[in-house]
Design a protein around this nucleic acid. Sequence first.
DNA 1: TCCCTCCATTCTGTCAACACTTTTGGGGAA
DNA 2: TTCCCCAAAAGTGTTGACAGAATGGAGGGA
Lengths: 226, 226
Amino acid sequence: MTGPQRTLVDTVFDGIFQLLVSGEIPLGGVVNEVALAERFKVSRGPVREAVKALQGRGLIVKEPYFKARVVDLDVEDMIEIFQLRESVEGMSVKLATKVMSDEAMDALLQDFEMARGNGRVLDLHVRIAEESGNRRIQSLLCDELYYLLRLYRARSGSTPGRHDNASAEHWQILRAMRLRDADLAESLMRTHISRATEALQRLLVTDPSPVPPSRRDGRRRKEEES
Amino acid sequence: MTGPQRTLVDTVFDGIFQLLVSGEIPLGGVVNEVALAERFKVSRGPVREAVKALQGRGLIVKEPYFKARVVDLDVEDMIEIFQLRESVEGMSVKLATKVMSDEAMDALLQDFEMARGNGRVLDLHVRIAEESGNRRIQSLLCDELYYLLRLYRARSGSTPGRHDNASAEHWQILRAMRLRDADLAESLMRTHISRATEALQRLLVTDPSPVPPSRRDGRRRKEEES
DNA sequence: TCCCTCCATTCTGTCAACACTTTTGGGGAA
DNA sequence: TTCCCCAAAAGTGTTGACAGAATGGAGGGA
């Protein structure tokens, strides 16, 4: 009842995740259990379970008796994720528009006004998911998809030249929410994300490999941390 | 190349899952590591990892140093899942309608004709997800949500009196797909699932606890219950 | 020179034992 | 009787060691 009673598995889980987003273990890189165990000063058991958990979240892929590897996200993966986001976030904002109280709505608008200065864009999506009242949708968006987004953006810079448009589109969504027009809000959100998807698809036809793969080059020794 | 090279964790994973769907471990029941280890004739290590994997899929919930428990799905959980399904399966059928080849479309219609005899309803949803071309949507639907559906239906019988309607709605969806009307197919699918959601909501206001805690326990071991 | 085979190395899978935490149940005091 | 405290029991967290599989390279033969 005092502390959150964190277990080693949780600590290692967060630690490995930090290694991923920081790029210390690159996308597609090998995840070595013993190296991680040494690094975090624990045995291999907690590391194995943490890797298993990350595998469950799709951040690490593994086959029996093969090395575990960080998921290798390319543009096509991102397109798939954005297609999924388009549908789910549409439902998310639709539900939020219906169930949010007037007070929560005002608070949301105020928060968004305040956070306008810094460049945080994803926060609105997170807030809407939290207000949707659907824990499963919230978990899917916040605990799974946004992790992958952060992972991808950590490698290849965020989609360029869209922040200005995105901000305007965010305002439109908020207006529809305040007017309690759930269907309009859903439609706007879907269009909003669909635009990002199209940007990715343009990226796909323009340059099939936006990040030159330094990873496919087979087995180099010790391509991870020391 | 020859054998699938299954590991003990996979075996135990499937074994525990069978215990869940068979109801031998009831929803909300405790999951004892040592008892499972004895039952499957393995050590606690593989059991722990399998439980961790099931936890990652949302079938088992656990807090540090507390007993692990099977997720206790109630009607509200199902409503949340169906809201998520409505959005995702709408996108799923929309994508499938766009990307499926004519041959695949014909095969789908034929398969559906053939499977018309037996009462399998979910198969169409699975097939559509497989044909969507979006692996992440397919994984979400087939590997996560449908597991939970099966778990819920194993306890409380499938939503009654809807199979006849469902079949007609399935045919409408298939017709829209064959006409390559992606938006219509999406709309029909969303309405289709929305109807099931409304049935659940009626269940909620009619009888808040559709399954009284008469938890049929097919257990003969010392597994306790509070 | 190329390729096949075999072996050493490395890493993952599994196990039994130990340490820590929670729960349980009994005994004593108000 | 009721409540609180404490010790035993049960269960989870963690560890180190051992076994099996896959990778990488050396050596021999065509």
